[in-house]
Design a protein around this nucleic acid. Structure first.
Length: 266
DNA sequence: AAGATCAGCAACCGCCTGACC
DNA sequence: TGGTCAGGCGGTTGCTGATCT
């Protein structure tokens, strides 16, 4: 069987389960001060009763300053689907093309989505066109819009130094999401103003990128000259091979996310 | 109002791989 | 060259809160 990591063995007393704010604080401040050199030594140096692996996981999936949280946008979702088609369950590789998202987050998202789709398939094959019973009780739903989580809007995160995670942060997912959404009205509408004045479109399967304002529709946005349209996006996600260039969501934290390399969406 | 059901998420577990001795 | 260790990854589980009956 798998070798038990020395740092995780029973010899040392290590805590398990959810991380407390104090532990987060210790880990975050330690890494902020000294950086990451050796995960196995970090627990001791930071005064944590955790194994190094656990610290790494916590950092990678939650404390990392470049992480954005909240619901996946429609474009992120499409990209994940396309990448998954091309790469399979290589979550880390998929995550590498989605800045601000951890592999764990993407994996969870995919599993939830897959589960949903399987249920729908099952239901549709047995009961014709009947909606699956579970579909109306979901919180977010495939529309990517309403729910307890914020809408699929790319909110630029504050700079890492402005984002001292532990102080006042709440580990609960909903709170984590809302803590980065400064505009509460964005939770209900399909558009929101981006810091640069462009319009962020979210919900109803619409693109979540920063796009030119569209008075009539939230589902199409860009032009080939300066961006794309749904057809372009669809072609992109349909053609997985297209994704193997320098083509991924750009994690620019100072502005709305755009596609990299020649296909700007704004 | 209370219990059942479900979705979302955090975290653990086991395995693999590469670096080092 | 083989053994050990640490980092990393994917799969899975369990908890929590929202929603429905």
């Amino acid at each position: 069987m798998g070798r038990v990591h020395p740092c995780c063995s029973e010899e040392k007393k290590v805590r398990k389960g959810l991380w407390s704010p104090e532990e987060d604080e210790r880990l975050a401040s330690h890494i902020a001060r000294f950086g990451v050199s050796c995960w196995s030594s970090i627990p001791e140096l930071a005064g944590l009763q955790r194994c190094g692996k656990s610290c790494r996981l916590r950092w990678m999936n939650y404390l990392r300053p470049d992480l954005k949280r909240g619901r996946f946008s429609q474009q992120e979702e499409d990209l994940i689907v396309a990448l998954h088609k091309a790469l399979g369950n290589s979550w880390s590789q998929i995550a590498a093309r989605l800045p601000g998202r951890s592999d764990n987050e993407i994996k969870n998202f995919w599993n939830a989505r897959l589960r949903k789709k399987l249920r729908q398939k099952e239901a549709s094959s047995t009961a014709g066109s009947k909606e699956p019973a579970a579909s109306h009780r979901r919180r977010g739903g495939e529309d990517g819009g309403s729910g307890t989580h914020p809408p699929a809007v790319f909110n630029p995160l504050p700079a890492p130094e402005n984002r001292p995670r532990p102080a006042g942060y709440v580990a609960a997912p909903a709170a984590a999401g809302s803590s980065y959404d400064s505009d509460p009205s964005a939770a209900t509408g399909s558009t929101a103003a981006a810091p640069d004045g462009s319009v962020l479109v979210a919900g109803n399967g619409a693109a979540a990128d920063s796009v030119a304002p569209s008075p009539t529709s939230t589902s199409s946005a860009c032009t080939e000259a300066g961006g794309c349209d749904d057809g372009f996006l669809k072609a992109m996600v349909d053609d997985a091979s297209f994704l193997f260039g320098d083509f991924y969501l750009d994690g620019n934290q100072d502005g709305p996310i755009s596609f990299w390399e020649g296909h700007a969406f704004s």
